[in-house]
Design a protein around this nucleic acid. Sequence first.
RNA 1: GCCGGGGUGGUGUAGCCUGGUUAGCACAGGGGACUGUGGAUCCCCUAGCCCGGGUUCAAAUCCCGGCCCCGGCCCCA
Length: 437
Amino acid sequence: MVKERIERVKGTRDLLPEDMAKRRWVFERIREVFEVYGFKEILTPTFEYTKLFQLRSGEEVVKQLYAFKDKGGRDISLRPDLTSSVARLFVNKFQNAPKPVKWYYITNMFRYEEPQSGRLREFWQAGVELIGSANIEADAEVIALMIESYLATGLREFTVNIGDRVLLDEFAKMLGVEDDIGLMRLIDKKDKMSREDFIASLKDFGLSDDAVEKVLFLIELKGKPDEILPGAYELFKSDKAKEELKKIEELFELLKAYGVEKYALIDFGIARGFDYYTSIVFEAIAPNDLGIGSIGGGGRYDNLIGVFGGKPTPATGFAIGIERLIPILESKGLLPSFRLSPDVFVVYIGKELEVKAKAIEITQALRKAGIKAEYDLQGRKLRKALEYADKLEIPVVVILGKRDLAEGKATIRDMATGEQKSVAIEKIVEEVKEMLG
RNA sequence: GCCGGGGUGGUGUAGCCUGGUUAGCACAGGGGACUGUGGAUCCCCUAGCCCGGGUUCAAAUCCCGGCCCCGGCCCCA
């Protein structure tokens, strides 16, 4: 016989019962916060026309699509994020809905990248989109929500670092740099290299000594607003930049009102990709030794709806990377432990149908009472059945044999103490409930 | 797409450099010793060299290609 082993597809993961229990717990914590903030859950299709994702361009983006032709010859891609789909949905059906539109999603995404630490080809994100408000309150709302989402999972050591694309643009203009994207790309990499290498790469990029000084000054603008903003007001002279700085100042005032300002920092070196963000951008960082950088991020994208053919509509949002968050929570011992085994194991002795049937009836009665119960489908001998229950740490075993049955009773065993009692069959549910507390 | 390190029963591993008995060990799984009482012991069973090609009398072992894993680069919406 030829056995061909089928492997998992590269960059994908099998999620086992323990994994699912953890994920479900984390999803629920996050979902609760999303809901109390008034966001409503949506889900768009797993795949869309490739065109949808190409529209907001970026050659890299297209290269990392999981793209294919379907049988009808359509060019299709698995969604690399939900923002594009949400924008499409909004343009298709919700342009005249009352504003703001507040949506959230918890689902999987696909990107064709080389897998590495904290990066798979299929991954899950929990995110929100807030569409229809250009006010800084909308930015504050989603940033506060992001912070509270992490707090809900028990995480405490993290910061949400806030940057601004307008300021980076103004900065590039100030330096007379035409390739502003190239400059942002370099600035984004600042933490990955030594100061000397960073300076060298800036010079290679063509910056004058004076401009290099300014860049170094800019990336030092990282911290609490009262420490940072005075320096920022000195660095930026244009009206547009000053106006933007005022917004950020207000943003932090609002975050104070939300009660989450201690988790928020200014970091003007944050660029977060280069395609659709237009103003405030932010990313969440949680110190860890797992090699995991950002655990989530987002920002304002005021042009995207227009790009997709809608009337220009401001929007902001964020996404939390579940595959990055869970290992961090786990390494900090913040995840509860989950019991997957049943609470009661019903064992019958012998092969008689009558006994077997009674065991099933007892199991069903327990289940109807909401108790996680199983009976021994393997038909093990009592000794093996107890070993099994012990191994799975099942706290209560109900033993049913002909002798018990003759008296209309069953034996209930407390696996921790080994204590047993003989109980009338109709009293079993009641008795077990009491034992399980 | 590129670079480095890996891939031996379900899991963890020895063996690989230096090719040569039946690929060893531990745990897990199933059964028995023990026909109504667990965490112990003993015995038995199940199950493996990632795939393909090459070199060789002989390949888990050496060579080439592919796939997958771990990590890094690019990129990270």
